[in-house]
Design a protein around this nucleic acid. Structure first.
Length: 561
RNA sequence: UGGGGCGUAGCCAAGUGGUAAGGCAACGGGUUUUGAUCCCGUCAUGCGCAGGUUCGAUCCCUGCCGCCCCAGCCA
């Protein structure tokens, strides 16, 4: 028996899991429930993936349950498209979601009832002040606010006005319901925060049943309580809201006592993880859509070929803390290559073709050489690759005045063609402009398969594709959307966009089996990187995306010079 | 100048009153029919700074400094 297979998975430790463990051990809670509560006003990005992995992960680890709950309290911004896309992303991430969906809007009636309850206790009132006036009354960070004249209204009058708000008697923005807490509180969230506002916009779930909607603050904790959520995990910017969260829970007849814990959100170099800014990129056409492979969205990463397991692994290496930092994108890249290195079938594709004629190879002859599909996995077997007199190699694999350390083709140098033969460059053909347009080589028939019987060694092995059998394709190379490490610091993030984030290569030459690659499968183009087909591909025009390049220490060394 | 947080290597981080895990990156070496992978090694006399308590402090105390969040009828 393999002990590795039976070893218990190691306990994950971070301040939240330690807290959960403690609460469960000392009886503070008798079960564990979390929730992932996206607002359906955009697509999920990798920062959300952190929250998803945390919430679903904790639930799974401690025998609890995690709800996917749409926080749909603002119909002015939300849309069914996002509800659908978010579900598809969560499902794809494969974090143990059971398919059950909850909505804050499921509880609108109960929330309304509790708002009346608060009014009845004298803890909430209808505000007549305009938004601007309220801002004035609120004070500043260093000065206390002033109490509004509306604050002294009677319970009956408040109740009456609130019911009339619901009935649609007032214009949007005419009045709001506020909590009556403390206009002088140092924490501005406690200066009589808004609980309900009038919004006439069709709601994706409730249509026009309501014209008043609860704010996040009023809805979130109470919905947690109704769903039996024990640990409500959110990001640091909500830390200031916790006293309000607690105040509402304490003053309402809720069936449970959820607690909020805050962790730091994910930041990553060369990208922007703000739904507002990502929305702008999409709306203004700077990218092709939410699932543009350059986007840090879950759907963008998926389209690019990133395995869900890579995202989960990436998140698990981050750990949960309250430190605000920025993870290097290289970390994600490593996590993407890691599983692909094990699973991806090796193929050959020439991105920037340079024709090579093997002069001593019989005209019209075609051979099929055996190539290993995956050196990391013997069961992946081998495949036949056609070889003939004319082939393509990568332009970068030839250099005229090559330095000694250039282990590739140059006049007079011998290299190995992967799985085929040793070839030696005998002539370089140029066009009138002096551009190299073709290489003439000779091959050594004794080296079939890639080894020389005389023990002769070559330093370089090149990928190649038979000219006669090549599949022509378009290949899209992706570079960071932002060249700068920290685009968020730019005065205008749009101007920080990397003009070279997308490189489209046409006329690429791929080995024949690539014509039949299934959608969604990621293969390695040897020596280049990992690639998969893009949904834009058609039978006439295959399109491949580069998921991520291979590490390239040679290029790195050259760049240093 | 109000309130709430955070400061351990280039990055993400664990950690304990007893002498600083791990991962990524980087660098050096070995293997290699992918300049990939894989393997081996190096990488904090130091835990924001300054005092104090203590036999001993990254961990306790005090005072500073730096960074982040909050003045939506967004979430």
């Amino acid at each position: 028996m393999n002990t590795e297979d039976t070893a218990a998975p190691e306990e994950v430790h971070d301040f939240i899991r330690d807290r959960v463990r403690g609460d469960l051990a000392n009886g503070t809670v008798d079960h564990l429930a979390t929730r992932f509560p996206p607002e359906p006003n955009g697509y999920l990005h990798i920062g959300h993936a952190k929250s998803i992995c945390l919430n679903f992960g904790v639930a799974q680890e401690f025998g609890g349950h995690c709800n996917l709950r749409f926080d749909d309290t603002n119909p002015a911004k939300e849309d069914q498209e996002f509800i659908d896309a978010i579900q598809a992303d969560v499902k794809w991430l494969d974090v143990g979601w059971d398919g059950d969906v909850k909505y804050t809007s499921d509880n609108f009636e109960k929330l309304y009832e509790w708002a009346e309850h608060l009014i009845g206790k004298g803890l909430a009132y209808i505000e007549d002040l305009s938004a601007d006036e309220m801002r004035e009354y609120r004070g500043t960070l260093t000065e206390p606010g002033r109490e509004s004249p509306s604050r002294s209204r009677s319970v009956d009058e408040n109740l009456d006005l609130f019911r009339r708000m619901r009935a649609g008697e007032f214009e949007d923005g005419a009045r709001v319901l506020r909590a009556r807490i403390d206009m002088a509180a140092g924490n501005i969230n406690l200066r009589d925060p808004v609980l309900y506002r009038i919004v006439r916009a069709p709601h994706p779930r409730t249509g026009d049943a309501w014209c008043i909607y609860p704010t996040y603050d009023f809805a979130h904790g109470q919905t947690d309580a109704m769903e039996g959520v024990t640990h409500s995990l959110c990001t640091l910017e909500f830390e200031d809201h916790r006293p309000l969260y607690d105040w509402l829970i304490e003053n309402l007849p809720v069936p449970a006592r959820p607690r909020q814990y805050e962790f730091s959100r994910l930041n990553m170099t060369h990208s922007i993880l703000s739904k507002r800014l990502l929305t702008q990129l999409v709306a203004d056409g700077h990218v092709a859509g939410w699932d543009d492979p350059r986007m840090p969205t879950v759907s963008g990463l998926r389209r690019r070929g990133v395995p869900a397991s890579a995202i989960r692994d990436f998140i698990s290496r981050l750990s949960i803390s309250k430190n605000e930092g920025t993870v290097e994108a290289a970390m994600l890249e490593h996590c993407i290559r890691d599983p692909l290195n094990d699973s991806a079938l090796r193929r050959m594709g020439v991105l920037r073709p340079l024709k090579v004629v093997i002069e001593n190879y019989p005209e019209g002859q075609i051979e099929e050489v055996d190539a290993v599909n995956n050196p990391r996995d013997e069961t992946a077997g081998t495949r036949k690759v056609p070889f003939c007199r004319e082939i393509y190699v990568e332009r970068d694999d030839f250099m005229e005045d090559a330095p000694k350390k250039f282990f590739r083709l140059s006049l007079g140098r011998e290299v190995r063609l992967r799985a085929a033969y040793f070839v030696t460059c005998t002539d370089v053909i140029k066009d009138d402009a002096g551009e190299v347009i073709e290489l003439r080589c000779t091959y050594d028939p004794e080296t079939r398969g890639g080894d020389s019987p005389d023990g002769r060694k070559v330093k370089g092995t090149l990928h190649w594709v038979s000219a006669q059998h090549a599949v022509e394709a378009e290949v899209r190379l992706y570079n960071p959307l932002f060249a700068d490490e920290n685009p968020g610091a730019a005065e205008d993030f749009v101007s920080a966009l990397n003009p070279d984030s997308l490189e489209v290569l046409t006329g690429c030459k791929l080995e024949p089996v690539l014509a039949d690659i299934p959608a969604g499968e990621v293969v390695q183009f040897e020596r280049l990187g990992y690639f998969c087909t893009d949904p834009d591909a058609t039978a006439e025009n295959p399109v491949f995306n580069r998921t991520v390049g291979l590490r390239d220490s040679f290029a790195k060394a050259m760049a240093k010079k």
